[in-house]
Design a protein around this nucleic acid. Structure first.
Lengths: 200, 200
DNA sequence: GTAGAAAAGTGCAACGAGTCAACTTAGCCC
DNA sequence: GGGCTAAGTTGACTCGTTGCACTTTTCTAC
């Protein structure tokens, strides 16, 4: 069938893009992000440096290859949620289902380490999420028939998209995600003092 | 005299720093951020480019000159709040008192316009706030005698520090700040449909 | 006061990211 | 097979940023 890769041209294009991304990731993991130049990557992938920038918007984008359609996934989670499920529950479930498994993958450990130890990549990763604030906010607003820039909807979108950054690095990410959603649903409550620690 | 805090040297240093910042801001407002190079600024201030980087960490920092001690102000708002005032009320009041007047200042209009129309500056401004997440989170945690990285406290700090970005550009910033704090205190509520608009 | 350390500033060269324009190459379609 | 188009190359260029060697100014100690 003609569906997976169409045309010889687009296949070669995808191939070079992939070889660039592969070379970049390998070099980054070997030497560290700052110790690898675009020329190094271009040489390793046997392309010119300008070709690298034809496929990727910048150096950081090389690390987060398939940034895929997080946006459409988020919007779908809002719009196509199960009947009767509240909006916040749908978002909570989506975060638990689609973000937690990715970060829990064992092979991603060194990748996560690379990102966390490189300030430029940490900043880029955070904006990767918050960039979708407007889109998610609009999707939420549509659910309630209000303007796309409705303050409450945009605020919720922004706060939800901050959750990955907040839960990152926690020992129990699942519990962290739940706790943050509890804040969003019930309002913020002062934490319990550890003077009377829980039994278990 | 041996006692005055400022020596002759430090005064001249502050003077050159100021002349660099002035030249930079003027050129940025005249031509736009991307149309001004560091070399232009250095020439206008009659210093060398290396001197510019001795005073400022990067090009973006030239725009946000005195980034002052937002951090200590935030912590003070938390720690030295009026007796009996709740934490969230103290934060709400601090945001209303110290952030709103700044952005409402009429002369800042063109400055705000410059920042908003330059992606690099928008990103930098956002991180300027969220950079203090850990510090504010620790201050909040201290108020309740829990660990400095307590999830609820860090989450609240992060959300509060997002408020300027969320309220920016709203027609009624004060109402926006209040509305967001209401979300934080009472939890998120679906917005009212505009089919039955409120009277006033 | 004067010597000399230390800081502030200069000039220059360099590196890496990213862009641009002109050119070659290869797949596509008729 | 020939023209169109997109992918890739090449090389030069801009710009942010850093490093190094050097000069000037201020502070400090004698």
């Amino acid at each position: 069938m003609t569906e997976p890769p169409v045309g010889r041209r687009e296949r070669k294009k995808a191939a070079t893009r992939q070889s660039i991304a592969d070379a970049a990731l390998q070099l980054f993991l070997e030497r560290g992000y700052d110790q690898v130049s675009i020329r190094d990557i271009a040489d390793a992938a046997d392309v010119s440096t300008t070709t690298v920038f034809k496929h990727f918007t910048g150096k950081e984008a090389l690390v987060f290859d398939q940034e895929q359609d997080r946006e459409s996934q988020l919007n779908a989670a809002v719009r196509q949620r199960a009947a009767g499920q509240s909006l916040l529950d749908a978002l909570r479930q989506h975060v638990l289902d689609s973000w937690l498994p990715i970060t829990a993958h064992p092979r991603i450990a060194e990748f996560t380490n690379l990102v966390d130890s490189t300030p430029a990549l940490r900043a880029y990763a955070e904006r990767m999420w918050t960039r979708h604030t407007d889109s998610l906010g609009a999707a939420i607003a549509d659910e309630f028939g209000v303007d796309h820039d409705d303050l409450a909807c945009v605020t919720l979108a922004r706060f939800v998209l901050e959750i990955p950054a907040l839960a990152r690095g926690r020992q129990d990410r699942r519990a962290a995600v739940d706790a943050i959603f509890d804040i969003l649903t019930q309002g913020w409550q002062p934490p319990a003092k550890p003077s009377a620690p829980p039994s278990s």
